[in-house]
Design a protein around this nucleic acid. Sequence first.
RNA 1: GCUGGUAUAGCUCAGCCGGUAGAGCAGCGCAUUCGUAAUGCGCAGGUCGUCAGUUCGAGUCUGACUACCAGCUCCA
Length: 595
Amino acid sequence: MPDALYTFENENYKNAYRHTTSHILAQAVKRLFPDTKLAIGPAITDGFYYDFDAPEPFGPEVLEQLEAEMKKIIKEKLPLERFELSRDQAVALMEERGEPYKLELIHDLPEDAVISFYRQGDFVDLCAGPHLDSTGRVKANAFKLTSCTGAYWRGDSSKKMLQRVYGTCFMSKDELDAYLERVEEAKRRDHNKIGRELGYFTTVDVIGQGLPILMPNGARVIQLLSRFVEDEEQRRGYQLTKTPFMAKRELYKISGHWDHYREGMFILGDPDDETTECFALRPMTCPFQYQVFLNSMRSYRDLPMRLGETSTLFRNEDSGEMHGLIRVRQFTISEGHLILRPDQLEEEFKGCLELAKFMLETLGLEGDCSYRFSQWDPNNTAKYEGTAEQWNAAQTLMGKILDHLGIDYKIGIDEAAFYGPKLDIQIKNVHGKEDTLITIQIDMLLAEKFGMEYVDADGSKKRPYIIHRTSIGCYERTLALLLEKYAGALPLWLMPEQVRVLPITDRTADYADQITKTLRASGFRAETDRRSEKIGYKIREAQLQKIPYMLVLGDKEAETNTVTVRTRAGGDQGAMALADFLAAITEERDSRAIK
RNA sequence: GCUGGUAUAGCUCAGCCGGUAGAGCAGCGCAUUCGUAAUGCGCAGGUCGUCAGUUCGAGUCUGACUACCAGCUCCA
């Protein structure tokens, strides 16, 4: 039998190994805290977890005690034995052992399901398996319990919150250490850390949760990104709009937001008093941009109408949801709506996708993204507008387009917008948590609600289709992911400060200023560091700030009218004529090169 | 919203059993004029997140609130 069978290269073996470790954890918990009830404990991407209903939450000290107990269980080399029971026997066993969560799981199994258990010593768990044959197979020095947090039973926030213990395990201590080091390295790139340290954003208690202040560096990057998007959209036939940040409640009643999204909106006024005016800050741009289309009678010749807006939105997220720049209550998005004839849908959808891909490629993020076809949940229709027929039609159409375009996607049930299915472009942050960066949505419902129509070639009035889309997503989130991707060393064209000019002595400070002036005249963001500090000190500071280019200027350079170039990644590059340096960085900037 | 954790100078962190606040870095001043990741000396900087409570006395103990972090749930 090939050795690879019993390594982590074998996905099945890895999962069985980690799943068995989770059982060892559960056994340790039962030994130390016998009143604890068991929920579930699967293997996951980076390890495993087990959910418990424990009388007391597990703190860090308890995790250490549990690790010690787990080592004992490993040493005992307990064999894992599988056995099957009839439904009645299974229920009786779990009742006897006092495991209400397991009883609920058994109850939900299909009538004809095989009900299997695994036993290791005094510990028995309802489990489909598979497992290793002995607890002794798990390496006692290559596992770690990483955290304990809350998690809802069955992922349902209306159900009880349990204690979830996360852990990881490998087949050697070296692999465990390497994994833990990777996690630490990822944390060092966390935008929430470096974004604050490097002056991209901050938060302030008195302003409130989810309302970050963009500092000069962050504001600059977002300005550069939004200019880039607006120019690119203009090139691709978009018209620019600028619509209000708020509207009367009546607008949201038409769009359906009042019924489906009220909890997510900031409302100004008493929403229940119909005798007074009530406003709400906009959580989306759609109903506002539709007014542009509605402004006059539209011909089939006017379509497609592509509307773009750098649009600030407000969403009243629950208090625990905010995270750095990734999840906030006010954000600005590259929003747009395309109003179309049905025959234009596929072509325009493709155009939106090409634009999104162009943006992602330019930023260097494309390789980190995955696609999700977000559909409604036919069992949860209250969340959605429209009929099953309308949803099926929209989703079938979208599925066809995605297949034509050869998009490799996974399906997300109950992930749709309330008005239609979405293609979400997903990306993971440094913690491995996935968020939507870009979304393209087909909407066959709102045009009807707003009475949008165009006059077709035969003179009859027709209902247009609408695509909702972003091209680069929302700027705050995109900035966060860029900071993480590049650990703060953004591509030259996006760097808030592109060149730092460093005179070695006061004698060359004026020459340095002259160079800075020339660079600025060519549109570069450059600063002179005129302080009376040693060159090593100035370089260190510029390096820590990830400045792409440093120009080190001493008497030699001033005399020969040259600049000595240092790059943040490559160190000293030697002396050259300013014109040559300028030509090189102009090319790098204008091509939006990723270095 | 839920679970757990955290909150001391701009930043990173000390501060014991409750007795009135400490360091390094950053900042400012002076000296230094230096060739590729930290020059030296000095100065200044804090209603210990906020509000209550216990106590002769609270950074330290208790409660509520606010914000931040991780996870859950929810979402761009």
